[in-house]
Write a protein that binds this DNA or RNA. Structure first.
Length: 551
RNA sequence: GCCCCUAUAGCUCAGGGGAUAGAGUGUCGCCCUCCGGAGGCGAAAGCGCAGGUUCGAAUCCUGCUAGGGGCGCCA
């Protein structure tokens, strides 16, 4: 019996009590069933008496005293107590909790899947770093969080497309191209250009990769040649480093294509039809203040060039036309000022901000070494890239360290700590627990413990009750992480599962002590051991972290 | 000046209005005669400040303080 089962039972009993006149008619909301922190408060507890008593014209204790006996009569419930201000504490019958172990094992990879997002087509755009330099740590955070979120949303039935937006149009790319050209000519970096060893390397690669003598071309043609080839090289590097990080995008979208296809002009025309465009000072504006922005926005500058937002208008429209019900953008904190105008744009197109368009703002990552901030400078060549991070700690540890915190929190990544490759990183704690489940199973099998028997009532040690209760929560955790767009909940939960598993391992043997008889309890525990392995494996899978069989 | 995020144990961070606020790490003390000690058990140690809402606030609201980020016809 799971807490969700209990919630359904409680709702049913409440309806019956109302129908029979024991409770006055009242409208009740969601029934919350939680694991009490204190085990003396039973296996599960609900606060419905405190939530609904007022609506039913009763005091919480009175309400609880009516509900509790009715619940106690339900099959599988051992006892029900009313405590404190009106908590209803439920203790399950022996075996009612343990049966879940077998269900988990039999469900296997499908344990934890849900259908809350079934049929919803979602577009997740993340990373989208400019192709003008190596991937930085901030991009790595989004790669980790975005890909994990995609996996979690998929687990709840959503149809998810991972998308990367290449800003390969506009002034930054021009600066990038000029910088490459200058480097190839051994000239100093242009004013406001990009510097660094990587620029020289790319410039050299461009030269090596073309038969003709680019440097002999006229200025404009040479710059264009470096732009095209340089950007292509950067695309390749970004795709490779993302893939090596376990992140494979379904769509790499090129900003430039929006201009070449006329999509930008169409988007502006559409807004003009809707009456949200005006001209002033020789520029074309979006009247975004109509939709809550704090000022109107220029979309075509007075010199005729498109402002950055023009591409976003067309891009959003393009996503919607491709059938995405929900477009989720993941942006760094340095772009939070962009949220209002994006939401205004969404509303201007007639969509619903917050539904069709969601924007997640992630705080920046601080790199520190022994607690001291690491100063990063492209010029000084002290930029720490995503690849550096992976080289130091590996993909699993890097992804895990970046996904286990809320995106609302600034995260400190301490290089000195990670370089030690010690067990400071909790990912090892979780992975070790998984490896242990595998090795215990191997060992058990070799000693003749099989799965021919399952007697859930034997899973009655406190540490097995705790482990079972923790495992049962998994579907709720994944559903909650999907709904709230918070992958870190899965990581934190897995750490709790690992802890519960280690404590159980310490208390309850799956194999008999040497020379001992294999008993039903050992076979039953093998099921529980496997159930823990399933949850750890499934959960790590949602985070894009490997679940090794040995370490 | 305005906007966003943050403030919880020595440190890094969890904590969706509920009962005695958790984990990792660090410190101190234990457990190697048995399935992996990358583990377990115990101890010390905390909600920035002031109000408010509520039966109940780390959580919601207001103000203050402190830190990070952002407020272009830049991208």
């Amino acid at each position: 019996m799971t807490p969700d089962d209990l919630a359904i039972i409680i709702a049913r009993v409440l309806n019956e009590l109302v129908a029979s006149g024991r409770l006055a008619q009242f409208e009740f909301g969601e029934v919350v069933v939680e694991r009490p922190k204190n085990r003396e408060h039973g296996d599960w507890a609900t606060n419905v008496a405190m939530q609904f008593a007022g609506k039913a014209g009763l005091k919480p204790r009175e309400f609880a005293d009516i509900l509790a006996p009715a619940l106690e009569a339900v099959e599988g419930i051992e006892s029900v107590d009313v405590a404190g201000p009106g908590f209803i504490n439920i203790t399950l019958a022996a075996g009612a909790a343990g049966s879940i172990a077998k269900q988990i094992v039999e469900a296997g990879a499908s344990f934890g899947l849900g259908d809350a997002l079934k049929g919803i087509s979602m577009n997740l755009e993340f990373v989208s770093a400019n192709p003008t330099g190596p991937m930085h740590i901030g991009g790595a955070r989004w790669a980790s969080v975005g890909d994990s979120l995609a996996r979690i949303l998929q687990s709840q039935g959503a149809k998810v497309t991972r998308e990367y937006y290449f800003n390969d149009h506009g002034a930054q790319i021009d600066r990038f191209a000029r910088s490459l050209l200058a480097a190839a000519r051994k000239e100093p970096t242009p004013e406001d250009g990009y510097a660094g060893a990587y620029i020289e390397q790319i410039a050299q690669k461009v030269l090596d990769g073309t038969a003709e003598d680019i440097l002999a071309l006229p200025e404009a043609e040479a710059q264009e040649a470096f732009r095209a080839a340089g950007v292509e090289l950067m695309f390749g590097e970004i795709k490779t480093s993302m893939h090596d990080f376990g992140v494979d995008f379904d769509v790499f979208f090129h900003e430039n294509s929006l201009y070449e296809s006329g999509a930008v002009q169409k988007a502006i025309d559409r807004l003009r039809e809707l009456g949200h465009i005006f001209e002033d000072d020789g520029a074309t504006w979006l009247r975004s203040t109509t939709f809550g922005d704090d000022r109107d926005r220029v979309i075509l500058k007075s010199d005729g060039e498109a402002a950055y937002i023009a591409g976003d208008l067309a891009y959003y429209l393009d996503k919607r036309s491709r059938g995405f019900d929900r477009c989720i953008y993941m942006l760094g904190a340095d772009h939070h000022g962009y949220v209002n105008r994006m939401m205004a744009m969404c509303a201007a197109f007639g969509d619903t901000p917050g539904v069709n368009l969601e924007i997640m703002i992630g705080q920046l990552v601080n790199l520190v070494r022994n607690g001291e901030p690491v100063r990063m400078s492209k010029r000084a060549g002290t930029v720490v890239t995503m690849e550096d991070l992976v080289d130091i700690v590996g993909v699993d540890a890097a992804r895990y360290a970046l996904v286990r915190s809320s995106i609302n929190s600034m995260v400190d990544i301490d290089l000195a700590l990670l370089e030690k490759k010690t067990n400071d990183n909790p990912v090892f704690y979780v992975q070790y627990a998984h490896a242990r489940t595998k090795q215990v199973a191997v060992n058990a099998l070799s000693l003749g413990v099989d799965t021919s028997e399952f007697e859930p009532a034997l899973l009655n040690h406190p540490s097995e009750e705790e482990l079972l209760a923790k495992l049962i929560e998994y579907p709720r955790i994944t559903a909650g992480a999907a709904e709230l767009r918070e992958p870190h909940r899965v990581a934190r939960y897995l750490e709790e599962v690992a802890g519960a598993y280690h404590r159980w391992y310490d208390n309850c043997r799956v194999t008999p002590i040497s020379g001992g008889e294999v008993e039903t309890v050992h076979r039953t525990r093998l099921w529980l051991n496997s159930a823990a392995g399933v949850v750890l494996n499934n959960g790590l899978g949602l985070l894009g972290v490997s679940a090794p069989e040995r370490m």
